[in-house]
Structure formats: C-alpha cells, structure tokens
Design a binder for these strands. Sequence first.
DNA 1: AAGGAAATTGAAATTCAATTTCATTTAAGC
DNA 2: GCTTAAATGAAATTGAATTTCAATTTCCTT
Lengths: 148, 148
Amino acid sequence: MKKKINEKKERLKSFMKQKGFKSTKQRDIIANEFLKTGEHLTAEELYKRVSEGHKNIGFTTVYRTLKLLAESGLATERIFADHLTRYEPVSAEEHHDHLICLNCGAITEFENPKLERMQVKIASDFGFSIVDHKMEFYGYCRDCNKDA
Amino acid sequence: MKKKINEKKERLKSFMKQKGFKSTKQRDIIANEFLKTGEHLTAEELYKRVSEGHKNIGFTTVYRTLKLLAESGLATERIFADHLTRYEPVSAEEHHDHLICLNCGAITEFENPKLERMQVKIASDFGFSIVDHKMEFYGYCRDCNKDA
DNA sequence: AAGGAAATTGAAATTCAATTTCATTTAAGC
DNA sequence: GCTTAAATGAAATTGAATTTCAATTTCCTT
C-alpha cells in the first residue's frame, strides 16, 4: 500500500519535472495526505485535513494541487448528486462505479467487467465511441437498511 | 403526442390545485413550451425560447416553473459533466440513460432493460437498495465519428 | 362584480462553490 | 549567492443557482 503511494509520488514528480513545475513543501504535504486518504474528498475537506497539521497551507494551494493531480492523471474529478466536485486517487485498477447512500452519504466503489463490456456494446450499437462513462447508484447501503 | 402533453398539463393542474398554487399565463406558456420541446434544457435555454414570443416573461419565473414541474413529477433535474442543471420531461417510459457527445454536445437517450436488471443485481449483492441510478456515456456520436 | 388575502412575478440582490488575481515568497538552474 | 520564473495564499471575481421584495395578479368570499 505504502509502496503504491510512493509509486504515485514518483509519477507526480516526473510529471511535474516534464511540465516545468516546481516541487514544494506544500504540494508534498497535500499530495501525500490526498493519496493516503484515498477517499472522495472535496477541496474544502482536504484543506481541513491538511490544515489541521499545517496551519500555514491555504485553501487555494490545496485546490490547485488537486487540479494538478487531476492533470497529471493521479486523480479524477467527480461530481455526484450534491453538485460538489470531489477528487479521488486514480488506481491502476479497472474503471469503477459508485454506490452512494442517500442516508449516511457513504460512497462505495465497485467494478464489474461484465457490466463494462455490456456498456461498450450498447454504445457501439448507437455508433457511439466511448471515451469515458459514469454510473452511480443512489439508494440505501447495507447498514442503513439495517437501521430502518 | 399532443394528447400526452395535454395529459401532463392536466397532471400539473391537479398537482397545483392540491398544493394551493395558482395557475397563471406565464406558467401555462412556460410549461407548454417545455413539454413541447422535450429536450434537456437549462433554465437559461428555456427562458430564451419562451422570451422570443413573450418578452415580458422573466428568467426567474422560468426557473421557478421548472422547479415546480420537477416537484410535481413532470420533469427531472439532471446534471451532466458540464455542471449545468438541465430539465427533461418525465415520460411514462422506462428509466433511461444518456449518451453525451463530447464534440457536438448532442444528448441521446437510450434504455436497456437487461442493463437495468444487471444493475439491480449488482447493487443487491452489496446489500444496497437502489432508489435511483444514473448512467452516462461520454464519447463521440456517429456523426462526429464520421467527420473525424 | 367588488374587495381582499394570499400567491405570483420579475428585476435586482444574494449566495456559494469554483476560479482568478496579484503582491510576496520560494525553488532551482546558473 | 544571484536570478528568474513559478508557487503561495489572501482577497477579489465569476457565474449559476437561489432568494428578496415591491408591485401585480389570481381566486375566494361576499
């Protein structure tokens, strides 16, 4: 797990070098916290986490670092039904989709190759070539079903 | 087709009565244009259409009428990758999904019962009960593929 | 049909996340 | 160490979405 994060940090470093971007303390701290956390965070949420330990890091820098991570391919921007922009570390794994609990807000990821294949087929039947897709289920998770 | 629209207008009327809302010229005109158009329109777009023939109708009223239509179950709010809120008349048909062209912006609808069933099954494997779901394909449509 | 309470309208103001600006600070090649 | 181009962060700006409020309209009651 730690290995993977270091791998990603290396990838970020080389991307930045190639683009002529500088490596800074702030970016290191922010990227580290983001990759470590591995959740669907808004810039605001990541800012809160980061600034707990580092009161001198500004929101703008967190925001821009997330954009940078997205540009370098280490993060993906996602917008769910609450309209907020969230960021998620990109894994080497397959494309995945999301289950979103309307009660507790938990976001669960899943992947299903069979579903993926079906999607590609449907699209091609329309003469449509897929670049990306998005699929979200909204409902109630196991825990919240239990409580009800 | 015209029948369906009238049916919907009836539905709207009874919803409004029940809720104690008043029927006005503006609402009639806006709802009519919206139901007639049947596309994925933003409030801004619908406002432009409506105000061509009725220069005295304000944007706010269009906006509020769309919200009202959504409340009454005659429209659905949708947000695609451009982050704008669009409204779409609700049809009696099955749930449907969207193909969105990254070049020309065309939004094509499709439905696939087999896919739906698969989705329900996947969700239930996670102990998840689905209330709603959203699926969007981003890519290039037949026409734009041709041009390239 | 007139009166009046309550809802509607629409221009303007406000909100709020997202993004940009700009003066100051910092990183990294020479 | 010096230089300069990029990075930082507080504050300002943007733009869609939403709310406010005075004037208007609907519709219920008489």
